[in-house]
Nucleic acid binder design. Sequence first.
DNA 1: TTGTTAATGCAATAATGTTGCATTTATAAT
DNA 2: ATTATAAATGCAACATTATTGCATTAACAA
Lengths: 145, 145
Amino acid sequence: MVQSSIKVLRNRGYRVTRPRRQVLEVLETAQRPLSPYDIQKLLWGKGKHLDHVTIYRVLDLFCTLNLAHKILSLGGFVRCALGKREGCHRFTVCRNCGAFQEFADKGLCAGESEITQDFGFHAEQHLAESLGLCSECSSPQGDSV
Amino acid sequence: MVQSSIKVLRNRGYRVTRPRRQVLEVLETAQRPLSPYDIQKLLWGKGKHLDHVTIYRVLDLFCTLNLAHKILSLGGFVRCALGKREGCHRFTVCRNCGAFQEFADKGLCAGESEITQDFGFHAEQHLAESLGLCSECSSPQGDSV
DNA sequence: TTGTTAATGCAATAATGTTGCATTTATAAT
DNA sequence: ATTATAAATGCAACATTATTGCATTAACAA
Protein backbone atom coordinates (compact mmCIF):
# COMPACT_ATOMS: atom_id res chain seq x y z
CA MET A 1 0.00 0.00 0.00
CA VAL A 2 2.65 2.48 1.04
CA GLN A 3 4.83 0.93 -1.64
CA SER A 4 2.27 1.50 -4.37
CA SER A 5 1.90 5.12 -3.30
CA ILE A 6 5.66 5.54 -3.50
CA LYS A 7 5.54 4.20 -7.02
CA VAL A 8 2.95 6.79 -7.94
CA LEU A 9 5.21 9.52 -6.60
CA ARG A 10 8.19 8.22 -8.60
CA ASN A 11 6.21 7.71 -11.78
CA ARG A 12 4.91 11.24 -11.63
CA GLY A 13 8.36 12.68 -11.09
CA TYR A 14 7.99 13.59 -7.43
CA ARG A 15 10.79 12.88 -4.99
CA VAL A 16 10.35 10.25 -2.33
CA THR A 17 11.31 12.17 0.76
CA ARG A 18 11.34 11.24 4.41
CA PRO A 19 8.35 13.45 5.30
CA ARG A 20 6.32 11.94 2.49
CA ARG A 21 7.18 8.40 3.59
CA GLN A 22 6.32 9.20 7.18
CA VAL A 23 2.94 10.74 6.35
CA LEU A 24 2.14 7.77 4.13
CA GLU A 25 2.92 5.38 6.98
CA VAL A 26 0.80 7.27 9.46
CA LEU A 27 -2.16 7.41 7.09
CA GLU A 28 -1.75 3.74 6.30
CA THR A 29 -2.01 2.61 9.89
CA ALA A 30 -4.62 5.12 11.00
CA GLN A 31 -8.10 3.81 11.65
CA ARG A 32 -9.67 7.24 11.46
CA PRO A 33 -9.36 10.51 9.52
CA LEU A 34 -6.35 12.51 10.67
CA SER A 35 -5.99 16.27 10.58
CA PRO A 36 -2.60 17.74 9.68
CA TYR A 37 -1.95 18.40 13.35
CA ASP A 38 -3.10 14.91 14.31
CA ILE A 39 -0.42 13.61 11.99
CA GLN A 40 2.15 15.92 13.49
CA LYS A 41 1.35 14.76 17.01
CA LEU A 42 1.49 11.10 16.04
CA LEU A 43 4.89 11.50 14.42
CA TRP A 44 6.08 13.68 17.26
CA GLY A 45 5.22 10.84 19.63
CA LYS A 46 7.66 8.68 17.71
CA GLY A 47 10.37 11.29 17.98
CA LYS A 48 9.90 12.46 14.40
CA HIS A 49 9.58 16.21 14.13
CA LEU A 50 7.79 17.34 11.00
CA ASP A 51 6.85 20.95 10.48
CA HIS A 52 3.13 21.44 10.09
CA VAL A 53 3.71 23.42 6.91
CA THR A 54 5.38 20.40 5.39
CA ILE A 55 2.46 18.22 6.39
CA TYR A 56 0.01 20.60 4.76
CA ARG A 57 2.02 20.57 1.56
CA VAL A 58 2.45 16.80 1.56
CA LEU A 59 -1.28 16.29 2.06
CA ASP A 60 -2.06 18.73 -0.72
CA LEU A 61 0.11 16.73 -3.06
CA PHE A 62 -1.33 13.41 -1.95
CA CYS A 63 -4.85 14.66 -2.59
CA THR A 64 -4.08 15.83 -6.10
CA LEU A 65 -2.42 12.48 -6.77
CA ASN A 66 -5.44 10.72 -5.32
CA LEU A 67 -3.32 9.03 -2.67
CA ALA A 68 -5.27 10.70 0.11
CA HIS A 69 -8.74 12.12 0.47
CA LYS A 70 -10.09 14.78 2.76
CA ILE A 71 -13.16 13.90 4.79
CA LEU A 72 -14.82 17.28 4.91
CA SER A 73 -17.38 16.48 7.54
CA LEU A 74 -14.58 15.79 10.02
CA GLY A 75 -11.75 17.80 8.50
CA GLY A 76 -9.38 14.85 8.47
CA PHE A 77 -7.48 12.97 5.82
CA VAL A 78 -7.58 9.29 4.97
CA ARG A 79 -5.57 7.19 2.57
CA CYS A 80 -7.30 6.68 -0.73
CA ALA A 81 -7.75 3.02 -1.59
CA LEU A 82 -9.56 3.36 -4.89
CA GLY A 83 -8.39 4.89 -8.13
CA LYS A 84 -10.23 7.58 -10.05
CA ARG A 85 -11.19 5.10 -12.72
CA GLU A 86 -13.48 3.22 -10.40
CA GLY A 87 -16.18 5.86 -10.31
CA CYS A 88 -17.28 8.28 -7.64
CA HIS A 89 -16.11 7.70 -4.11
CA ARG A 90 -18.46 7.56 -1.23
CA PHE A 91 -17.36 7.50 2.37
CA THR A 92 -19.09 6.46 5.53
CA VAL A 93 -17.65 7.98 8.68
CA CYS A 94 -18.50 7.15 12.25
CA ARG A 95 -18.93 10.32 14.28
CA ASN A 96 -18.04 8.45 17.44
CA CYS A 97 -14.88 6.46 16.70
CA GLY A 98 -13.96 7.86 13.30
CA ALA A 99 -14.00 4.51 11.55
CA PHE A 100 -14.43 5.02 7.85
CA GLN A 101 -15.19 2.99 4.78
CA GLU A 102 -14.65 3.88 1.17
CA PHE A 103 -16.91 2.81 -1.67
CA ALA A 104 -16.74 3.14 -5.42
CA ASP A 105 -20.27 4.10 -6.33
CA LYS A 106 -21.07 4.22 -10.02
CA GLY A 107 -24.73 4.91 -9.42
CA LEU A 108 -23.73 8.08 -7.67
CA CYS A 109 -22.00 9.49 -10.73
CA ALA A 110 -24.85 8.45 -12.98
CA GLY A 111 -27.42 10.19 -10.83
CA GLU A 112 -25.25 13.23 -10.71
CA SER A 113 -24.78 13.61 -14.44
CA GLU A 114 -28.52 13.22 -14.90
CA ILE A 115 -29.45 15.84 -12.42
CA THR A 116 -26.81 18.32 -13.50
CA GLN A 117 -27.01 18.02 -17.27
CA ASP A 118 -30.23 19.96 -17.43
CA PHE A 119 -28.49 22.90 -15.85
CA GLY A 120 -25.37 22.74 -17.97
CA PHE A 121 -23.29 22.21 -14.86
CA HIS A 122 -19.88 20.69 -15.47
CA ALA A 123 -18.91 18.68 -12.41
CA GLU A 124 -15.24 18.14 -11.67
CA GLN A 125 -15.22 16.89 -8.12
CA HIS A 126 -17.73 14.82 -6.28
CA LEU A 127 -18.23 14.69 -2.62
CA ALA A 128 -20.37 12.08 -0.92
CA GLU A 129 -20.07 11.41 2.76
CA SER A 130 -22.41 9.75 5.20
CA LEU A 131 -21.88 10.70 8.81
CA GLY A 132 -23.36 8.49 11.46
CA LEU A 133 -22.53 5.52 13.67
CA CYS A 134 -20.69 2.39 12.63
CA SER A 135 -22.02 -1.01 13.63
CA GLU A 136 -19.78 -1.13 16.72
CA CYS A 137 -20.74 2.27 18.03
CA SER A 138 -24.47 1.89 17.37
CA SER A 139 -24.72 -1.43 19.18
CA PRO A 140 -26.12 -1.43 22.75
CA GLN A 141 -22.65 -2.13 24.15
CA GLY A 142 -21.21 0.71 22.06
CA ASP A 143 -19.17 3.22 24.02
CA SER A 144 -20.31 6.76 24.80
CA VAL A 145 -23.44 6.73 22.68
CA MET B 1 -38.57 33.36 2.26
CA VAL B 2 -37.14 35.42 5.08
CA GLN B 3 -40.67 35.60 6.45
CA SER B 4 -41.07 31.83 6.47
CA SER B 5 -37.76 31.46 8.27
CA ILE B 6 -38.91 33.93 10.87
CA LYS B 7 -42.02 31.85 11.36
CA VAL B 8 -39.87 28.79 11.96
CA LEU B 9 -37.94 30.66 14.61
CA ARG B 10 -41.13 31.79 16.35
CA ASN B 11 -42.80 28.39 16.16
CA ARG B 12 -39.80 26.74 17.73
CA GLY B 13 -39.67 29.27 20.53
CA TYR B 14 -36.60 31.19 19.41
CA ARG B 15 -36.53 34.96 19.57
CA VAL B 16 -36.58 37.00 16.41
CA THR B 17 -33.64 39.27 17.01
CA ARG B 18 -32.00 41.90 14.84
CA PRO B 19 -28.86 39.83 14.21
CA ARG B 20 -30.95 36.87 13.12
CA ARG B 21 -33.01 39.01 10.77
CA GLN B 22 -29.90 40.56 9.28
CA VAL B 23 -28.16 37.24 8.66
CA LEU B 24 -31.34 35.89 7.08
CA GLU B 25 -31.51 38.87 4.73
CA VAL B 26 -27.89 38.53 3.70
CA LEU B 27 -28.23 34.82 3.02
CA GLU B 28 -31.42 35.43 1.11
CA THR B 29 -29.87 37.86 -1.35
CA ALA B 30 -26.50 36.12 -1.65
CA GLN B 31 -25.77 34.36 -4.90
CA ARG B 32 -22.94 32.32 -3.44
CA PRO B 33 -22.02 30.52 -0.21
CA LEU B 34 -20.98 32.98 2.49
CA SER B 35 -18.54 32.33 5.29
CA PRO B 36 -19.27 33.85 8.71
CA TYR B 37 -16.71 36.56 8.00
CA ASP B 38 -18.16 37.17 4.54
CA ILE B 39 -21.45 37.87 6.23
CA GLN B 40 -19.80 40.16 8.73
CA LYS B 41 -18.12 42.16 5.98
CA LEU B 42 -21.32 42.47 3.97
CA LEU B 43 -23.25 43.75 6.97
CA TRP B 44 -20.39 45.98 7.98
CA GLY B 45 -20.56 47.57 4.52
CA LYS B 46 -24.12 48.57 5.33
CA GLY B 47 -23.09 50.08 8.63
CA LYS B 48 -24.36 47.13 10.64
CA HIS B 49 -21.80 45.86 13.11
CA LEU B 50 -22.35 42.26 14.11
CA ASP B 51 -19.84 40.43 16.21
CA HIS B 52 -18.46 37.37 14.50
CA VAL B 53 -19.27 35.26 17.53
CA THR B 54 -22.92 36.16 17.11
CA ILE B 55 -22.78 35.22 13.45
CA TYR B 56 -21.30 31.83 14.30
CA ARG B 57 -24.01 31.20 16.83
CA VAL B 58 -26.79 32.36 14.51
CA LEU B 59 -25.52 30.13 11.72
CA ASP B 60 -25.30 27.18 14.08
CA LEU B 61 -28.92 27.66 15.00
CA PHE B 62 -30.02 28.12 11.40
CA CYS B 63 -28.31 24.87 10.43
CA THR B 64 -29.96 22.87 13.16
CA LEU B 65 -33.31 24.38 12.15
CA ASN B 66 -32.54 23.56 8.53
CA LEU B 67 -32.81 27.20 7.53
CA ALA B 68 -29.20 27.24 6.32
CA HIS B 69 -26.78 24.65 5.06
CA LYS B 70 -23.01 24.59 5.12
CA ILE B 71 -21.25 23.90 1.83
CA LEU B 72 -18.24 22.05 3.14
CA SER B 73 -16.21 22.13 -0.04
CA LEU B 74 -16.16 25.92 0.13
CA GLY B 75 -16.71 26.51 3.82
CA GLY B 76 -19.64 28.83 3.19
CA PHE B 77 -23.27 28.88 4.15
CA VAL B 78 -26.33 29.09 1.95
CA ARG B 79 -29.98 29.44 2.72
CA CYS B 80 -31.81 26.14 2.71
CA ALA B 81 -34.72 26.02 0.34
CA LEU B 82 -35.89 22.47 0.90
CA GLY B 83 -37.24 20.81 4.00
CA LYS B 84 -35.88 17.65 5.55
CA ARG B 85 -38.91 15.72 4.41
CA GLU B 86 -37.97 16.01 0.77
CA GLY B 87 -35.11 13.55 0.95
CA CYS B 88 -31.37 14.01 0.76
CA HIS B 89 -30.04 17.31 -0.41
CA ARG B 90 -27.51 17.55 -3.16
CA PHE B 91 -25.70 20.74 -4.06
CA THR B 92 -23.85 21.84 -7.13
CA VAL B 93 -21.35 24.60 -6.55
CA CYS B 94 -19.39 26.56 -9.14
CA ARG B 95 -15.77 26.87 -8.09
CA ASN B 96 -15.44 30.04 -10.13
CA CYS B 97 -18.41 32.24 -9.25
CA GLY B 98 -19.85 30.31 -6.33
CA ALA B 99 -23.27 29.90 -7.91
CA PHE B 100 -25.08 27.02 -6.28
CA GLN B 101 -28.13 24.91 -6.82
CA GLU B 102 -29.95 22.71 -4.36
CA PHE B 103 -31.66 19.46 -5.26
CA ALA B 104 -33.79 17.02 -3.35
CA ASP B 105 -32.48 13.67 -4.46
CA LYS B 106 -34.36 10.63 -3.25
CA GLY B 107 -32.21 8.24 -5.27
CA LEU B 108 -29.25 9.42 -3.30
CA CYS B 109 -30.71 8.28 0.00
CA ALA B 110 -31.81 4.99 -1.50
CA GLY B 111 -28.36 4.23 -2.83
CA GLU B 112 -26.87 5.13 0.47
CA SER B 113 -29.04 2.87 2.55
CA GLU B 114 -28.29 0.01 0.16
CA ILE B 115 -24.58 0.41 0.28
CA THR B 116 -24.41 0.96 4.02
CA GLN B 117 -26.84 -1.65 5.26
CA ASP B 118 -24.46 -4.50 4.64
CA PHE B 119 -21.98 -2.90 7.02
CA GLY B 120 -24.49 -2.10 9.73
CA PHE B 121 -23.73 1.57 9.36
CA HIS B 122 -26.38 3.91 10.71
CA ALA B 123 -26.29 7.13 8.70
CA GLU B 124 -27.51 10.33 10.32
CA GLN B 125 -26.21 13.04 8.04
CA HIS B 126 -25.63 13.07 4.33
CA LEU B 127 -23.26 15.15 2.34
CA ALA B 128 -23.48 15.36 -1.42
CA GLU B 129 -21.74 18.18 -3.22
CA SER B 130 -20.59 18.50 -6.80
CA LEU B 131 -17.87 21.03 -7.34
CA GLY B 132 -17.24 22.27 -10.87
CA LEU B 133 -18.26 25.00 -13.27
CA CYS B 134 -21.73 26.35 -13.82
CA SER B 135 -23.03 26.83 -17.34
CA GLU B 136 -21.98 30.49 -17.39
CA CYS B 137 -18.44 29.89 -16.21
CA SER B 138 -17.81 26.89 -18.44
CA SER B 139 -18.94 28.66 -21.60
CA PRO B 140 -16.21 29.99 -23.94
CA GLN B 141 -17.02 33.55 -22.92
CA GLY B 142 -16.86 32.58 -19.24
CA ASP B 143 -14.58 34.76 -17.16
CA SER B 144 -11.25 33.62 -15.74
CA VAL B 145 -11.46 29.98 -16.75
C1' DT C 1 31.05 12.30 -5.53
C1' DT C 2 29.12 16.41 -7.09
C1' DG C 3 25.67 19.71 -9.04
C1' DT C 4 20.95 20.97 -9.46
C1' DT C 5 16.67 21.93 -7.91
C1' DA C 6 12.73 20.17 -5.53
C1' DA C 7 11.36 19.92 -1.01
C1' DT C 8 11.73 21.07 3.77
C1' DG C 9 12.12 23.93 8.10
C1' DC C 10 11.50 28.12 10.22
C1' DA C 11 9.50 32.52 11.37
C1' DA C 12 5.98 35.40 10.93
C1' DT C 13 1.34 36.25 10.06
C1' DA C 14 -3.44 35.59 8.57
C1' DA C 15 -7.69 33.41 8.92
C1' DT C 16 -10.98 30.83 11.37
C1' DG C 17 -13.31 29.17 15.41
C1' DT C 18 -14.32 28.97 20.69
C1' DT C 19 -15.26 30.22 25.70
C1' DG C 20 -16.81 32.91 29.70
C1' DC C 21 -19.08 36.65 31.37
C1' DA C 22 -21.23 41.27 31.64
C1' DT C 23 -24.77 43.76 29.21
C1' DT C 24 -28.64 44.24 26.30
C1' DT C 25 -33.13 43.27 24.48
C1' DA C 26 -37.16 40.33 22.82
C1' DT C 27 -40.99 38.55 24.86
C1' DA C 28 -44.55 37.52 28.32
C1' DA C 29 -46.93 39.07 32.25
C1' DT C 30 -48.76 42.85 34.72
C1' DA D 1 -47.39 51.11 28.72
C1' DT D 2 -44.36 49.20 32.07
C1' DT D 3 -41.79 45.79 34.14
C1' DA D 4 -39.64 41.25 35.02
C1' DT D 5 -36.80 37.61 33.19
C1' DA D 6 -34.38 34.79 30.54
C1' DA D 7 -32.51 34.41 26.03
C1' DA D 8 -29.37 36.42 23.05
C1' DT D 9 -25.70 39.52 22.05
C1' DG D 10 -21.15 41.97 22.44
C1' DC D 11 -16.71 41.97 24.04
C1' DA D 12 -12.23 40.31 25.35
C1' DA D 13 -9.24 36.90 25.37
C1' DC D 14 -7.63 32.88 23.53
C1' DA D 15 -7.18 28.46 20.74
C1' DT D 16 -6.89 26.31 16.49
C1' DT D 17 -6.08 25.99 11.73
C1' DA D 18 -3.96 27.61 7.51
C1' DT D 19 -0.72 30.43 4.50
C1' DT D 20 3.52 32.92 2.70
C1' DG D 21 8.41 33.97 1.83
C1' DC D 22 12.88 32.69 2.15
C1' DA D 23 17.13 30.35 3.69
C1' DT D 24 18.67 25.66 4.15
C1' DT D 25 18.61 20.76 3.26
C1' DA D 26 18.55 16.59 0.79
C1' DA D 27 16.79 13.52 -3.20
C1' DC D 28 18.13 12.33 -7.52
C1' DA D 29 20.71 12.45 -11.98
C1' DA D 30 24.97 12.73 -14.10
